[in-house]
Amino acid sequence: MAKLIKENAFVAPDQWQLRGDEDTVTDFSIITLTRWQAEKEQLKSLAQAGKLALHLTSDQTADVLADDCHHFALICIDFPKFADGRGYSCARLLRERYRFKGDLRAVGDVLIDQLFFMNRCGFSSQALRDDQDEHDALAAFSTFSVSYQNDAHDPRPLFRRRA
């Protein structure tokens, strides 16, 4: 069982549950993009109530979802392997291009040494792989106190912040 980090702190597991395309969708279900696209109209009320989440695989790019992102309280982006970096661009695009305001969660092969970059790319929560050390994980969020580029939190690169 992955350990949940929200806003840089460990929290108890929340009620969201991943549902297969054959399962019944109930409150706090995480559904696939295929299901959303097929059953959008029926699912909208649940979404309206803030009780629907979406799971994106690493080959589902942000542009496929686009403005539909606003229907979800939570979007999970899967990292099938830690070295698969597509999720970083997906996260930034959801935050910066499509202005997604809900919880953006990294799931899958989520390791300590990705946390800092994930945070900068706009992930607000991470399902940390269960074998990872909690103390080391929290420390990773403050690896760098200053960064050159802009990111999901600050649109200004360092060159607009340099004294």
Binding site: A83, G85, Y88, F117, Y148
Partner: peptide, 14 residues
């Protein structure tokens, strides 16, 4: 160089 150093999005390119 500065822009590419620890670019948060591009540490795991293909």
């Amino acid at each position: 160089r500065q822009w590419s150093t620890f670019h948060p999005e591009f540490a795991f390119l293909p």
